[in-house]
Design a binder for these strands. Structure first.
Length: 256
DNA sequence: ATGGCGCGCGCAGCGCGA
């Protein structure tokens, strides 16, 4: 089973890239973030034509998440129960017996800002909820744009980014609390190249210069982590014309 | 030097992302 996460930065603009990528990579499940698409406009028919079903929770202009899968999607649930949030950032569904959570963690804008406080509050609610989800679903995978670079090795220039949003101690502690629930960072289950990143600013040729951060992650429950046979970042879509600023992350699970 | 790019919205230029 091949699972992926990709912040597409507008599904309307990136649909051709997504369709090409689905045809080339043939994932079983893809979690999308920043679809920026109202549900009425979601391109479900185009994806169905490519052999994929969709579940989505979107809004105009901002945010928006979707799960695209070959198998039927059961028990679809939007949001974090008990956490009142206008912003469409979480979508969960079960595909082939695996509970899939798609998440778009708030960016936080700047350390100390209102949006930063919202991000920390959000991550606390997310962790509290995932604790119970892990009990309910032994086969749980949480994929998405976490907007946190967990360690200095996930940052092209740690000195420049130290204490900045995406890298601050509080954000990293919040990410570690997710790992402390028993979730494993799929990417770090394997030997990886140095300077592996999933996001590069559009400006200043930062992708060409590999000035990036690793902020998109696939977190696996213990039962899935022991079945995980690989986890990679696919740089190809970031090299196309008009790319998303994020690259997809792909995990392979050897499930019976 | 604190913007540089790309997106949505909507028709100018701004807010936002990370």
């Amino acid at each position: 089973m091949k699972l992926a996460t990709w912040n597409v930065n507008s599904l309307r603009v990136r649909l051709p890239h997504l369709l090409d990528w689905l045809a080339r990579v043939a994932p079983d499940v893809v979690c999308l973030q920043e679809t920026k698409t109202e549900d009425a406009n979601f391109p479900a028919a185009a994806l169905a034509g490519a052999g994929y079903r969709s579940a989505y929770s979107g809004q105009k202009t901002y945010n928006g998440v979707a799960i695209v899968a070959r198998a039927p999607l059961a028990d679809v649930q939007a949001g974090i129960p008990g956490f009142d949030d206008e912003q469409r950032r979480v979508l969960s569904a079960t595909a082939d017996g695996v509970r899939v959570v798609c998440a778009y963690v708030p960016n936080g804008q700047a350390v100390g800002s209102d949006k930063y406080e919202y991000k920390l509050r959000w991550l606390r609610a997310f962790a509290d909820w995932l604790r119970s989800e892990l009990e309910r679903h032994p086969r749980l995978v949480v994929l998405g744009d976490y907007n946190v670079a967990p360690e200095d090795r996930d940052v092209h220039d740690p000195a420049l980014w130290r204490g900045q949003v995406l890298c601050s101690d509080e954000e990293r502690a919040a990410f570690r609390r997710l790992l402390d629930l028993g979730l494993a960072d799929g990417f770090r289950l394997f030997e990886q190249p140095e300077k592996s990143f999933t996001w590069w600013d559009y400006r200043m040729n930062q992708f060409k210069r590999n000035m990036g951060l690793r902020i998109d992650h696939i977190l696996l429950s213990p039962a899935l982590a022991e079945r995980c046979s690989g986890c990679t970042i696919d740089l190809a879509p970031r090299q196309l014309e008009r790319p998303s600023d994020h690259a997809p992350v792909v995990a392979d699970l050897a499930l019976p």
